[in-house]
């Protein structure tokens, strides 16, 4: 192996370093502003404060009461977890049928699902709102879960179908010969083998749903079930905005995701990399 330190290596390292700084800058601003006392907010915008105000987090947490930040976090968690759970359950089952029962109907269904990926969901907001109002679910968790399951089902089915088609049929056939019914075969044999794509679906859709502002504002904005991005928005006032509290609450909103990633990253990466090794 060539271990000589050349200009090329130096240039590469320097580029990587600059890129790292660029990527870290927003994080620095986030933490720096969140810890600033009120009097330093506009006088020293770039400097890291010498007297960090940890109380900002407490103030941000208590700033809202109806609903509280804690309740909004819970709302976000319920909507995200609920949507992802239904997406994974229904999407994987649907893809299994499409992948394993080739025929005209399966082909047509698959085509329709793929078509669904192209349509931007914002286009359907008005009829959706009318439909939810007719169903009497506006402002509820259910409306958000139905919305997200519908929005992401095409992508979910697309991802699961592609992966299921690659799975060797031997596992399922072996289970069939062993006397397992279709549901036991799916849930005990096939579904665990889909772990890598389940991880992909959960992360892709989960992050989008957790961070979504637009749909949440329309469907649950102003209700007790507001999600955390909408709650953060309420910190921005017409005449006065306490940016240190806004940034503190953003950190609070990020924490569950960061904690989840730190705890689950080993399993997640193993799941992605593990695939279907026998």
């Amino acid at each position: 192996m060539n271990t000589r330190y050349t200009w090329k290596t130096f240039a590469r390292e320097l580029t990587a370093l600059i890129l790292a700084v660029v990527f870290c800058l927003p994080l620095y601003i986030l933490v720096s502003v969140a810890l600033k006392p009120n009097n330093e907010l506009f006088t020293k915008p770039w400097e890291f404060t010498s007297s960090p105000a940890f109380g900002n987090f407490g103030d941000a947490w208590n700033e809202r009461s109806d609903p509280s930040i804690g309740h909004s976090l819970l709302s976000s968690a319920i909507i995200t977890l609920g949507s992802v759970a239904f997406l994974v359950l229904i999407g994987s089952l649907c893809a299994y049928v499409i992948a394993r029962r080739p025929g005209k109907l399966s082909g047509l269904l698959y085509f329709l699902f793929v078509l669904g990926i192209i349509v931007p969901f914002q286009l359907c907001i008005v009829p959706l709102y009318a439909a939810f109002r007719w169903m009497g679910v506006t402002g509820s968790y259910l409306s958000m879960i139905i919305l997200w399951v519908g929005v992401f089902m095409p992508l979910t089915v697309f991802l699961y179908t592609g992966f299921t088609r690659q799975l060797p049929r031997d596992y399922e056939e072996s289970a069939r010969v062993d006397g397992a019914g279709i549901f036991r075969t799916f849930f005990r044999v096939v579904f665990p083998l889909l772990r890598p794509v389940t991880g992909t679906v959960a992360i892709m859709t989960g992050l989008f749903i957790w961070n979504d502002f637009f749909a949440s504002l329309i469907f649950v904005g102003g209700t007790n079930n507001e999600t955390i991005p909408v709650a953060i928005y309420s910190f921005v006032g017409e005449y006065l905005t306490k940016w240190n509290l806004v940034f503190a609450v953003v950190i609070i909103a990020l924490l569950p995701l960061v904690i989840f990633f730190v705890l689950a990253q080993k399993q997640m990466i193993r799941g992605f990399a593990g695939g279907i090794r026998g």
């Binding site: 031997d170 056939e173 072996s174 010969v177 005990r188 083998l193 279907i276 090794r277 026998g278």
Partner: peptide
């Protein structure tokens, strides 16, 4: 049945 690639559930 014993399959060619054993089909053991990983």
């Amino acid at each position: 049945m014993v399959f060619q690639n054993y089909a053991l559930y990983p």
